[in-house]
Design a protein around this nucleic acid. Structure first.
Lengths: 243, 243
DNA sequence: GAGTGGTCTAGACCACGTA
DNA sequence: ACGTGGTCTAGACCACTCA
């Protein structure tokens, strides 16, 4: 079924099986060969078969029941994996020249709306940036970013005139957790002006809040004008936890 | 560090390590104990340690290099897991009464734009539905759905006047693959009318294409008005495939 | 060369669910 | 009672890579 040689055996068993499931050859509910049958088929030990099947069960692609056997899971739409690329990488991947421009920069105590965005109780020192990302010269995304300088003081010394803050932060400030929020909104007058669109043009809004432990590091809100941008999600087989 | 007893040992090792990484105790770049050190620490065989570490490496949470050792990966934002709930469940989860209404229903050969949406070459018989989902009586989402009747002929006999097609399809037509596309758009005049909004109001648009094997089953496009709806994604540690 | 991870074996015992 | 998966052991050989 496959001609791969450079792959480990347990991975080959795994891909063989998941290919059969994803292609529909083995429909939901179909019984997968027993471990001892796979041992014989691939001429390997039971441990190797198990190392192939365990991750599939954890993914939720298959369901294993003692005595009964192993079955193709019944997929449900619950969650998908969404790729959220780095803007510069995304633009260059499209074959367009990437451009970056810092529109404004301000250091100060967080105002009440900024405190709300960073989820803070007490006003802390923040760096507030507004930047424009371009593709082939045309505005591609507007970025509004807050950086908590109590959590990431090094950021105060960086000139973000040429370096997009997202890339710098990823490289310099470790983070442990993030949350994304995706919505649609009409841009404010200022944002519309920067993007060269009307306030009636729908924008995709991507918000991201990033933590290191309990500290909020940064909050970013990206406006993508109109239908110029899509987020594409591939199918994720994860469902309920498998027994 | 943990008191779990009912968990398998390899899983306990795994969660111990990922907890230390996610909590920040082991920062990116930190060297994780060698396999033989973990064997000694947990009093187990190397295979068990390996079974704990291999999935972490596959996730991209750690990076393993021969001779050098195992290290905490430098996280990059690349992909997140997005929950895309069933609309009826989502509305009721918010504590609002859910309402459903079928606006139009048509059976026929696919037109050229419908063929493009379903990704078809030849015109097939399709069922085209337009439905409105309500929360507390107010329009919550407009659904435009195409069902390929060649692939799912049972759908032709269903009265979708009371049953939302999404739920029916999930329960009756197995699928193997799906793709989502998320964008923002201004609604057409017809859609704006059905949702009771202006054509200038930004909408979040969620498109989903579903396959069974090579057959396209259904295409759905959901319009959520304005900022009434968010998609929230939790952090997913998956990054590049680890060598 | 020496130490690391990558992979595999041929057993073993146990838990569980069906019969 | 029996057959399945769940887990683990104590080795083994290899490939890679750093010193």
């Amino acid at each position: 079924m496959t001609g791969r040689q450079d792959e480990s055996l347990n991975k080959r068993i795994r891909t063989d099986i998941s290919e059969r499931i994803l292609s529909g050859a083995w429909p939901p509910g179909h019984r997968i060969p027993f471990e001892h049958e796979l041992m014989a088929a691939y001429g390997c030990s039971r441990m190797t078969v198990n190392k192939a099947l365990a991750p599939l069960a954890e993914q939720g692609l298959i369901v294993r029941r003692r005595k009964a056997g192993t079955f193709v899971a019944r997929p449900r739409i619950h969650s998908v994996v969404l790729d959220i690329p780095d803007i510069a990488a995304e633009v260059t991947a499209r074959g367009e020249p990437y451009g970056y421009e810092l529109l404004s920069r301000r250091v100060g105590r967080a105002g009440s709306s900024e405190m709300a965005e960073l989820g803070l109780d007490a006003p802390v020192k923040v760096l507030a940036l507004r930047c424009l990302h371009r593709a082939s010269g045309r505005p591609f995304a507007l970025e509004e970013r807050l950086i908590n300088l109590d959590a990431a003081p090094e950021a105060a010394d960086v000139d973000f005139g040429e370096t997009p803050p997202g890339g710098w932060l990823l490289g310099h400030v470790p983070w442990t957790q993030a949350e994304h929020r995706i919505s649609a909104a009409n841009p404010s007058r200022a944002i519309a002006g920067a993007l060269g669109i009307e306030t009636t043009t729908a924008c995709l809004v991507l918000e991201r809040q990033t933590w290191r432990g309990a500290d909020r590091i940064t909050h970013v809100r990206l406006f993508f004008p109109g239908e110029a941008y899509d987020l594409v999600a591939r199918f994720a087989p994860r469902q309920e936890a498998a027994g």
